[in-house]
Design a protein around this nucleic acid. Sequence first.
RNA 1: GCCGGGGUGGGGUAGUUGGUCAUCCUAGAGGAUUGUGGAUCCUCCGACCCGGGUUCGAAUCUCGGCCCCGGCCCCA
Length: 410
Amino acid sequence: MLQKPRGTRDFLPDEMEGRRAVEMKLREVARCYGYREVCTPEFEDLELFTMRSGEGIIEEMYVFEDKGGRKLALRPEITAAVIRMYINEAKVAPKPLRWCYFADCFRYERPQKGRYRQFWQFGVELIGADTAAADAETIMLASDMLNATGVTYELKVGHLSFMKNLVKDLEPAMQRRVRAHLDKKDYEGLNATLESLNRTDLAASLTALVNTRDLVEAFEIAGAIPEKERFEQTIKSLDAAGVKYSLNFGIARGLDYYTGMVFEGFAENLGAENQILGGGTYRLAHLFGGDDVASCGFAIGFDRVMVSLGDIKSAIVPVVGLVCTSEGRTRALVVAKALRDAGIRTEMDLMGRGLGAQLAHAAKTANFAIVIGQREAESGQVTIKNLLTAEQKTVDLAAAIAEVRAFGPG
RNA sequence: GCCGGGGUGGGGUAGUUGGUCAUCCUAGAGGAUUGUGGAUCCUCCGACCCGGGUUCGAAUCUCGGCCCCGGCCCCA
């Protein structure tokens, strides 16, 4: 038997309803902040993704050549595509642009808990606003979105300039190595690297910076950083808005294109792959031949949020099983249309079952049965049965529709 | 790419000193029951992940592969 490709998943209706419910919550928060949805191609020129990340990432992407010999890749993330799209289509649109997306991405990696080869990201990009207010609003949006899902998480906010300022005298390659050590809390590796550079004087301040959760202390450790005032304003705004977060100056994010403020969200019950959100301010457009527009954005790892939330009970919605005899079938079709026109999920027998068997099936799949036999066909009324309470009555169609519509949780 | 644990009908399982038609529950289809239910009874459907090896004989032992789960690496 054929299996699905490694790292992919099938979603049955129950699970899809849960996913859609969470997706709609995210969409609604983004909408309220003014973010409008965009959509980019599922695959792009390979170059779009290698331009900033190097050839190394080819190993972790689905790369292929089309019949015209073009080198393409399934998108491993969406920010780069959105910025490409901005340059191609929307450079002159009034700033700032607030865009969001919900789409699947592909990475050729070893699957494990919360990591799949096809996965979904809900992301937002704020393009063209280079202010503390923009940074703060983006974090607020992230916080509100995660809150809306109900997931339990921790939000960490940091800024790259603190660490960059401490290591600014080192060569770029060494700066990256130091940041990698700190991101992983690998202090032994850090010390070894600093010793090889004869810069053990940095060790104390670097570890102090990574461990502090206090803004004033961080400024004392890192010294004069150019974005001091902006970051202070950002933090002040977050506090004013009541955002729950902690400061963390060890966040390095894997990417070089982040320029300042960075933030990450972590869920508690996910094991090794517990990051559910990542974002920050970045400049990417100039890489793709555009202006050097400042952007700020983040992406939520939708699948990890779903894993963290666990099983979701989908909302109870009214379902009608339309039960009919052969004499009532013509009338039943008319009744079914009326129910469906009223927005009610209505299912008729397709198996040629008798009345009892139809009712038995309805009892498993619906919360109302509407019975149409010869009597109902002649009288024009319908018999409606509440399958939970077993109450049954014969009423006009309009009354039956009203009763079904009134059904809800509780 | 590395380490560990796994893979028996759609779901959940029994079966490993190798040995008749592979167990049970559940789900699904049909019937007893052509104007009223999920009970009961009966029938049907349906599996040893794939391939090689050892053997008279493999779900069981062995090798390789695939896939799943957890961890490492990586994480744009």
